[in-house]
């Protein structure tokens, strides 16, 4: 088996309106800039972070914590970029 970097990180949603359509779009656009395979883990399933249709089914509210897993060379950078999105409240209130 190929030794591939696999990183886990969790981020909390701070913007009032939660993961609605616009933050979902931002998240997908950001994730898509990286080679790494990025997933969000919900219950037992993995949600493809580069698929807008999948991310929109999350509908996570303010205060919810999302667990991310990234596999690939630029996994670290990808997660950092995603982290700053969350910290920035997706540019919202």
């Amino acid at each position: 088996m190929k030794t591939e970097q696999e990183l886990f990180r969790s981020f909390t949603i701070h913007n009032q309106l939660g993961m609605h359509a616009r933050p979902a779009a931002l998240l997908v656009q950001t994730a898509s800039q990286y080679q790494a395979d990025i997933k969000i883990i919900r219950d037992e399933e993995e949600i493809d972070c580069k698929s807008i249709l999948n991310v929109m089914t999350l509908a996570a509210a303010q205060g919810a914590t999302l667990k991310f897993v990234a596999r690939g060379e630029d996994a670290e950078n990808a997660l950092n970029a995603i982290e700053s999105l969350f910290e920035d409240k997706f540019g919202e209130a």
């Binding site: 309106l17 939660g18 609605h20 359509a21 249709l53 929109m56 089914t57 509908a59 509210a61």
Partner: peptide, 21 residues
């Protein structure tokens, strides 16, 4: 299948997007 999954989401913002889809 995707629109059905989305129509079950408990968030009016997301449900609004079904029209876009």
């Amino acid at each position: 299948r995707y629109t059905q999954a989305l129509s079950k989401v408990d968030d009016p913002y997301i449900r609004d997007r079904i029209a876009d889809i």
